[in-house]
Amino acid sequence: MSKALSLYQFSRKVHKWSGLILSVVFMFVAVTGLLLVYMIPLGVADDLRTGKEASPSQSIPMDKVVSIATSQGLPGATSVEDIFRIEYRPGLNIYQIRFNNSQDVQIDASTGKVLSTNPDYSSFIITLHDGSFFGNWYRYSALTFAGLSLILLSFSGYYMVGYPLYKRLKARKKAKDLKNIAT
């Protein structure tokens, strides 16, 4: 068996098995990515409200934001340690406080009025999508392996398509040369 043919058969095996194994990772990333794209229509995330129009210099201080958010009586959202992230959105003039348990509080940045206290699972889905939910071992080993394997899948796929084309072109040229010699 020629080296080219054995490389072709090896490429097919590598392509098939790495593709089957990695399809689980790629499917997971695709599903969580779709959930992120359609999170508001699916009810996974809450629509952002709009606060009273004011300049950022008129915003309430951060300690008051924390105090208002933790005093809403939400389960598992009672102290500053329960807060996952606080986002200031100047275009909407709101603070969005996300708690570790996927609770979400939106507060008018200038008045301190609570605009929404609905659950928001987008942070959880983001951590699933980027792999941080599983820890650094997953992000830096499994996702690195998946990325490198995708490169390998691409090259083996190119070879599996290119090699037969090359062989056909070579056979046509040989047949054409033989025909020219015969005439």
Rank of each mutant, 00 (worst) to 15 (best):
Q72E: 15
M62A: 02
T70G: 10
S132V: 01
S6F: 04
G135T: 11
L48Q: 12
I126Y: 11
L34Y: 06
V29T: 02
K52N: 10
Y163D: 01
I60D: 02
L48D: 13
K167Y: 08
M27N: 08
E87H: 04
S57V: 12
Q72C: 13
F155R: 00
S110V: 10
K174V: 06
F145H: 02
G157K: 01
F10H: 10
I126P: 05
D47Q: 11
L92K: 12
D177S: 12
L150M: 10
K113P: 01
N118Q: 12
L148F: 11
S11V: 04
I94A: 03
S18H: 00
D130Q: 04
V114F: 07
T70L: 09
Q96R: 14
T144S: 12
D47A: 12
Y138N: 05
S149K: 03
V31Y: 08
S57C: 03
K170V: 02
W137N: 05
K13S: 05
V31P: 04
N118L: 11
S6C: 05
Q58Y: 09
T111W: 08
Y140D: 11
L20Y: 14
L92T: 07
L5Q: 11
Y166A: 10
A45E: 09
S102K: 07
L74C: 08
L36T: 07
G112K: 11
G112A: 04
S18L: 15
D104K: 03
G157S: 12
V37P: 03
L153K: 02
G162A: 14
K174E: 13
Q96D: 12
V44M: 04
Q9M: 13
V31F: 06
Q96P: 07
K167R: 15
Y88T: 09
R98L: 11
